[in-house]
């Protein structure tokens, strides 16, 4: 029996969940739980979680990261993905969420010689009125593509930002390429998420092609027994979207999951990421199918 079997059922027991054991429910873990449960065919608890998410939507169409995260931007994208990943999407809520996402943009500023990236490109911030970063931009690009807004200029600009933030030797980090002339190191989780959002994108620029290829190589090398659950999950999602998942991916995921449970308490958030990674092909909002989705 796989070490991953039984995880969806445990998530289903409490589908409205927080990050850790006994933590207050929050949008991100519940959104991932909704996607995981739907992929696993556990539709009743998935609908319970989705209804809770719909109740958390604010009047402006956004979803807060937690009861205090009134200015958070990134969780709106995740809630949208969870709502879209359904046979009966709540269209009005989705439309309001998309409008909120399109209206919200990270602060841009003139390029500065201290920084290697193009700070004039507009993406998405974690929190309103701050700068654009890789992960919130990747999540927004994924959500907008899934909602049929792949050609919208904001989505295109987001894709441009993600390409700009790829490092010369592959991968990316939270969103800086070089600072004071020093090239920074890549991190697995944002690299995987960025590559997931960039799936299906063509790049005529040789530099970008080279960096995407090197980024996939970086992710492949990251599928290592020492890589931890969240990082490994996003690495495998990015690789799956580019048809580059290595043959041993499932055993690596099982090892990471077992080691995580040896040290840390149950986390519905980490568990949901594992299920989403394991059942990638069952998740239509991820890039494998959206290239054929018509724009509205």
């Amino acid at each position: 029996m796989s070490a991953l079997s039984g995880i969806p059922q445990r998530i289903a027991a409490n589908p409205i969940c927080g990050y850790g054991n006994n933590a207050s429910p929050a949008v991100e873990p519940t959104a991932w739980a909704t996607i995981a449960l739907t992929a696993a065919g556990l539709f009743a608890p998935a609908d319970t979680a989705r209804r809770w998410l719909l109740n958390q939507q604010k009047n402006d169409g956004s979803w807060p990261s937690n009861p205090h995260g009134e200015n958070s931007v990134w969780t709106t994208s995740l809630a949208l993905l969870a709502c879209l990943n359904s046979n009966m999407p709540a269209r009005a809520a989705i439309d309001r969420g998309v409008a909120s996402l399109l209206a919200n943009q990270g602060k841009s500023r003139p390029k500065h010689p201290n920084f290697g990236h193009d700070s004039e490109i507009t993406g998405w911030a974690w929190v309103s009125d701050t700068s654009s970063w890789v992960e919130p931009t990747a999540l927004a690009v994924l959500a907008l593509k899934a909602a049929g807004y792949g050609d919208h200029w904001r989505t295109r600009e987001g894709v441009r930002l993600l390409k700009d933030r790829l490092l010369p030797d592959g991968g990316c980090n939270y969103g800086n390429t070089s600072v004071l002339g020093n090239v920074l190191r890549p991190h697995v989780q944002p690299s995987g998420l960025a590559l997931l959002a960039l799936a299906g994108e063509s790049s005529p620029e040789p530099t970008v092609q080279d960096r995407v290829a090197k980024s996939l190589g970086y992710l492949e090398r990251s599928v290592d027994p020492r890589t931890t659950v969240a990082s490994l999950s996003f690495a495998l999602l990015g690789l799956a979207a580019h048809q580059r998942r290595p043959a041993y991916w499932q055993s690596a995921l099982e090892t990471a999951w077992q080691r995580s449970n040896d040290t840390f308490a149950w986390s519905a958030y980490r568990a949901s990421l594992v299920v989403v990674t394991d059942l990638y092909e069952q998740i239509p909002v991820f890039p494998q199918t959206i290239s054929s989705r018509p724009n509205p």
Binding site: A26, E28, H68, S72, A125, W126, V127, T130
Partner: peptide, 12 residues
Amino acid sequence: IVYGWPKNVLHH
């Protein structure tokens, strides 16, 4: 979860 990664609210 309130301030982001990095905690850019503080930088600003």
